[in-house]
Nucleic acid binder design. Structure first.
Lengths: 352, 352
DNA sequence: CTGTTAGCGCCTTCAT
DNA sequence: ATGAAGGCGCTAACAG
């Protein structure tokens, strides 16, 4: 019986064994497997036959050891079950698979410590690149150790959220503009007291809140600290709870602006439970479209962003960076790609 | 300037460099990094200091080379953007991260050839284990080469879908029972002509269709081939299209049974576009709950499965298998874990 | 307690 | 066209 490996109970074939069986050198087998150098047709066929027979599969670990490339990239997100992220991951996977890369995915639960741990592990696993939706605060300043993790020692592309002290490429949405548009629409329709429920306090949410405040002040409305809430993990549950809290403590609120899909879902559930009708009792504009928003009763107006494009561009740019590093270049150019939002007007926002 | 690596443009520190700087041997550094063997307190501290200074991170590739373990497991699914899968992946990641593993994720687009390619790559990358929602047909018989990929050469747990010729652990839902329950409910309420829209033709969908047929025959209703459709990739678009097709070609249909969440969403959109009311014009029971189903107008009745549990159990069992293999054992016991469905009665199914 | 050494599986000059 | 040999970074067995 074939000797099995102690650690795993199974036995992988090696190039050496193929070489022995085929009666050639390891180098020759390497040549036919890797398709480099030159081998005579006869030798090639002999070796190829043995490879097939033995079901030999090259050991990518050993290859990586030599090549310094693992052909895998790491993706770190707060919550892979959130459609916003899973759609981005879908797009990333699609693009990098084309280029022969695999994707290691880490879920942090929007916990900074888990994020750092993931970064360390991915570093030690020598991923060729990193795509990260960080949960770090936008004004975070790093010490030396963290700098290596966050500042592009490994080719890195940030998505959705940025850290201002970090000068790496970031693919994001025009959060400020999107929020400004929505709130302006609310105001145009007569709303002055607009409740707003943000996700985790990253640059993304800050910028949306900034857009909200700017629209308010541009229309001469005073910002009221009482009308805003920030989430810990941006869950449906939080959206529900904050909606109720906001509405119960501030009877003057006539419009609600939940800043992401999960929170918006929570808001819809809360309003339903409170027997509040949209838009007769309360107006609503959501963020991040979902398939049933258009056929909801009433259809929900939305600020939307292009998740496919965020994922695709992040992957595309990361591959470029990886490639340029291999060539010893350093990429220049704009470090921030900001995608426009779309305002889908439906029927959840009424004139008052 | 520090010599940079040709392939990547950056330089990783090695154990050798740490050793030189600290004035000790590589073995000693290895001992303090790995925390094995014994080092004097004094040496330990000296080396530790250098490690911190240099920001040394052990190379997991080289470690894997020795240990034969990559501490990563591969997950293969048809569509990571489908909430059913992203929730499962979430649960898997959660469980395996606890055990110090990472997750490589492959999206196949429900394409068998991409699935096989992924399997080959994951094999070559020497993942320690595999969790797979296969798109292979349930009655697939493998040749020798494919057998190595599918039949547990690498510890494997199947999720959601099974291949009968493969004797590996499978964590799945009681598809037959769930469908039987739903269809029985339809029939009890007077429906005889029930349209059914299945996902990709895997064991899962077969079993749901079997449940549908059994409920029909148990109640003396003849199965009508015209009332059933199978998807290619199980998308919202297909759900929409098949719903329209089914209803236009078969005016006698009074109830619809879309067999997964995406298809159900498509059905809802189609009915909306056709101006058909639920349940007055058409009754509906969906499969896989979603947060807004309960507050839809009307609330949608659902057959649901526990995605968290599928993911958790698959991860848990896989870790057990990996562990047992390391100890040279072979796990015995039941090869199939079948989770019960839940029937959530809401208001989308009317008596006729 | 610490250093030396021999691989892990592959790739890659350098000879032949 | 093919083979021999060294080394990627780490671990572990064996000396000292």
């Amino acid at each position: 019986m074939k000797k099995t490996d102690e650690a795993t109970g199974r036995k992988e074939n090696t190039i050496k064994e193929v070489a022995e069986r085929a009666g050639v050198s390891q180098a020759t087998v390497g040549r036919v497997v890797g398709g480099y150098g030159s081998v005579s047709k006869k030798t090639y066929e002999k070796v190829y036959k043995v490879i097939k027979e033995m079901g030999y599969v090259p050991n990518a670990i050993a290859q990586s050891m030599k090549s310094k490339s693992t052909k895998t990239i790491g993706v770190i997100v707060g919550n892979i079950a959130n459609p916003f992220f899973s759609e981005i991951v879908y797009a990333i996977e699609n693009r990098i698979a084309e280029a022969g890369f695999n994707l290691i995915i880490s879920n942090t639960g929007e916990d900074v410590r888990r994020e750092i741990l993931s970064l360390e592990i991915l570093h030690s696993k020598r991923v060729d690149g990193l795509i990260i939706a960080t949960t770090q605060l936008s004004n975070k300043i790093f010490n030396e150790v963290e700098k290596k993790l966050y500042c592009g020692f490994i080719p890195t592309v940030y998505i959705d959220r940025e850290i201002f002290s970090v000068n790496e490429l970031c693919v994001k949405t025009d959060n400020f503009g999107g929020a400004y548009d929505a709130v302006s629409d609310f105001i145009r329709k007569g709303h002055k007291n607009i409740g707003i429920i943000a996700g985790v306090p990253t640059s993304t949410m800050e910028q949306r809140v900034d857009g909200y405040r700017k629209a308010l002040s541009d229309h001469g409305i005073k910002f009221n600290e009482e009308f805003i809430r920030f989430s810990k993990i941006a869950s449906i549950e939080e959206g529900k709870q904050f909606t109720k809290e906001l509405l119960q403590k501030n009877k003057e609120i006539t419009a609600l602006f939940p800043l992401n899909n999960l929170i918006c879902t929570g808001t819809l559930i809360a309003l339903n439970e409170m027997n509040l009708r949209i838009p007769s009792n309360i107006s609503l504009i959501g963020w991040d479209d979902f398939p049933l928003a258009a056929i909801n009763n009433p259809p929900i107006s939305m600020i939307t962003q292009d998740t496919e494009k965020i994922g695709f561009l992040a992957a595309e740019k990361l591959l470029e960076i990886i490639n340029s590093k291999e060539c010893g270049n350093d990429l220049f150019g704009e470090k921030r790609i900001t995608l426009k939002t779309h305002f889908i007007h439906r029927e959840s926002c009424a004139k008052i």
